[in-house]
């Protein structure tokens, strides 16, 4: 290891420290044109403790990527945080000065994208790109930077790093590029790693390797993970906690194993029923009827009502509020599936 703890300008998380790493409160993201606002992410709240792995699932267009990008301060042009707060170790990133934000990206917060080419510079050797963050933020020399790049490439399982440190992104396969991006993101030992569908484009064996590697590297550097995917089996393998998003809102959250074993929101149930499960070969797939609403036309009541088999009249007029029950399960549905002590007549 070339980096000693004192080289790092950031503190190792103290295991007794109970402060939340990330605290998102009533976050709204959207477009503002004059006085009209179009809401894409609509009142999302969740907390991430140090060292946890938090998954976000939902259909495409539900606002998963926009939520991640808001945390990273990388919202696409035209979109912005409309209201709410994103507290990172107590500092609200929404109101923080751009210089404070820039200082956090890299040494504290890093992001991994679905398509590695969006994050990699096609005309620079990958080794230089991995070393860039540590050189800028941790003040490493050119030589130390290269040594760290080699070490990170080894850590992420890239064979023959000495040869590949000089390679350009197009000379590597998709799986290797994804590893380079992960090496780049972890080089500054961030405390929070944001992953947007990092394995969707990979085949199963490479996916397996990348997920295992993320898990062990996070444990090693003490980082927490926010992991966006639309694959329930991947989230089951990777994340301790889970939030399900629909039409810009979180509709259900809790421990991954509990939510997937006993979903309470009809949408979560629908996702599970429509995906084939390798361990239940004969089971028929039941698709959710219809399509998610477009952002401009979200229904006034529960956004899922037009597709929901449990819907009642009430669902069309009022939006259900996300409520946490005594068993720490959170769900936004008037007719949530109950379990255990909650079952009422």
């Amino acid at each position: 290891m070339i980096m000693t703890e004192t080289d790092l300008h950031v503190l190792e998380p103290d295991p007794s420290d109970r402060t939340l790493l990330l605290e998102i409160n009533d976050l709204r993201v959207g477009l503002r044109r004059g006085r009209t606002e179009t809401t894409i992410v609509d009142g999302v709240s969740f907390d991430v403790d140090p060292r946890t792995r938090f998954g976000i699932v939902g259909e495409s267009g539900s606002g998963k990527s926009m939520t991640l990008r808001a945390i990273a301060g990388l919202l696409p042009g035209g979109t912005e945080v409309l209201s709410g707060s994103i507290r990172y170790r107590g500092t609200d990133l929404v109101t923080a000065k751009p210089s404070v934000r820039r200082g956090l990206m890299g040494p504290e917060i890093a992001m991994i994208f679905q398509e590695p080419m969006t994050a990699l510079n096609p005309v620079r050797p990958v080794g230089d790109q991995i070393a860039e963050g540590p050189r800028r933020h941790l003040g490493l020399s050119k030589k130390e930077g290269r040594a760290l790049a080699l070490e990170m490439m080894g850590h992420t399982g890239i064979p023959d790093p000495v040869r590949r440190v000089r390679a350009y992104p197009h000379e590597l396969s998709g799986g290797l590029r994804q590893r380079v991006m992960i090496a780049m993101a972890l080089a500054c030992r961030p405390k929070l790693l944001l992953c947007d569908e990092p394995t969707t484009a990979l085949d199963v064996t490479v996916q397996h390797q990348v997920l295992d590697m993320l898990e062990s590297l996070c444990a090693e550097v003490g980082a927490a993970l926010v992991f966006v995917t639309h694959d329930l089996a991947v989230v089951n393998k990777t994340c301790s906690d889970l939030a399900v998003m629909y039409a810009g809102r979180i509709v259900e959250s809790g421990r991954t194993s509990e939510v997937l074993a006993n979903p309470r929101h009809p949408y979560t149930r629908g996702l599970l029923d429509s995906a084939p499960d390798f361990d239940q070969p004969g089971r028929a797939l039941v698709p959710i009827p219809g399509l998610p609403p477009s952002i401009a036309n979200r229904p006034p009541g529960c956004a899922f009502a037009p597709r929901c088999s449990r819907a009642v009249a009430e669902c069309d007029s009022a939006a259900p509020i996300l409520t946490t029950s005594t068993d720490h399960r959170t769900v936004a549905c008037f007719r949530a599936e109950a379990s255990g002590s909650e079952i009422s007549a």
Binding site: G157, I158, P159, S173, G175, L176, V204, T205, Q207, H208, Q209, L211, D212, D231, L232, A233, V234, N236, K237, S257, L260, D277, F278, D279, Q280
Partner: peptide, 24 residues
Amino acid sequence: RALIASIPRMGDTSGAADLVPEGE
């Protein structure tokens, strides 16, 4: 066998991790 061991599962199975191929 390596392919099958790599399948992400819905249940609580850690799979036969030894069979997952190392390297590229």
